[in-house]
């Protein structure tokens, strides 16, 4: 989510709320006989408000599950999640007087620290990474479809190489007008064969197939660039330059296509990587958030009882 001018009201509201909470906390902390405690009236207020904000932030998941619910715009919920979740952390610190307590409260606070930190990281990632996507990945696709698209790229590359090989192996359909004319004259000139007329070049064809089988397909079929030369742009460029030298000019456009396929694969790999960064923090943030809400509710019950 881009944090821009549209967040201004939320930002100002959060700053004012936090400033107010701090202004109340400082004299409360200084004048409390035994220091600020969660069980004091103000401590309970901080705890209750902080937990209410946490609950609201946690409800974002529910809101996403039911997008048709008429309970405010998803964007508003997202902003509320971001800013109220941010403010909830200092409020909970005020609640506990900056002490983590023992056992249950300590576990709770450390979980909350991880939730808060992962949330901050997530907000920063969500702010910056989409720009990288837009600028550097024009060939991006739907993340869940990357594997499928990769398969299609492999098929496309195979098809292109088949075409090139057919041409190289003397298939008339793949020859140019001039080659066809030369091939047609085979027999009239004793040293010209049909194959030579079509400039058939079986060794090159074999080499191209070999390139497909050993370099391109392994690269396209597997996710990631690990251990494959085509995964590196510079090495890929060098390899395709070599192919262009090897193949006749009429096949260069196919080589360009093959290179483009590899470029798309590299972008998909990068998209995959960025997606994991962009959403991977959620694997920490969401489960720990649920644990915090659960233990927080239990802590409230126990604290009220004792």
């Amino acid at each position: 989510m881009l944090i821009d001018q549209t967040h201004r009201k939320w930002f100002l509201g959060s700053v004012v709320g936090l400033a107010l909470a701090t202004v109340v906390y400082v004299p409360y902390s200084l004048n409390s006989p035994q220091g600020p405690k969660g069980s004091s009236v103000l401590g309970l207020i901080y705890g209750s408000v902080g937990f209410a904000f946490m609950l609201f932030a946690g409800l974002l998941g529910l809101r996403k599950k039911f997008p048709v619910w008429r309970v405010g715009r998803a964007q508003t919920w997202m902003r509320g999640h971001l800013w109220l979740g941010l403010v909830s952390f200092p409020l909970i610190l005020f609640h506990g007087g900056f002490h983590f307590g023992t056992q249950l409260t300590r576990v709770l606070m450390w979980l909350f620290v991880f939730v808060f930190a992962s949330g901050l990281l997530g907000a920063a990632l969500q702010h910056f990474i989409p720009r990288i996507h837009t600028a550097q990945l024009p060939m991006e696709t739907i993340y869940e479809q990357i594997d499928r698209v990769r398969g299609q790229l492999a098929q496309e590359a195979t098809r292109l190489v088949d075409q090139c090989c057919a041409t190289l192996e003397g298939e008339v359909s793949g020859a140019s007008e001039r080659q066809r004319a030369v091939a047609a004259s085979a027999g009239a000139n004793w040293d010209v064969t049909v194959a030579s007329g079509l400039q058939a070049d079986e060794p090159t064809s074999n080499e191209l197939r070999q390139f497909l089988l050993t370099e391109m397909l392994p690269y396209l079929e597997k996710a990631g660039p690990r251990g494959v030369r085509l995964g590196t742009a510079a090495q890929a460029q060098a390899m395709f330059r070599h192919l262009r030298v090897l193949l006749p000019p009429n096949l260069h456009s196919q080589v360009d296509d093959l290179e483009n396929i590899c470029l798309e694969k590299r972008q998909l790999d990068k998209q995959n990587r960025l997606h994991r960064i962009l959403h991977g923090w959620l694997l920490v943030h969401i489960p720990l958030s649920y644990a915090v809400l659960l233990l927080g509710a239990w802590h409230a019950v126990v604290a009220i009882r004792f």
Binding site: L104, V107, L111, L283, I286, P287, L288
Partner: peptide, 20 residues
């Protein structure tokens, strides 16, 4: 990814509950 998220979202709170 979604499967992991689901399992962790269920598993981690369950672990917390189990601890309590």
């Amino acid at each position: 990814f979604r499967r992991w998220r689901l399992w962790l979202s269920v598993g981690v709170p369950l672990i917390a509950l189990g601890w309590v």
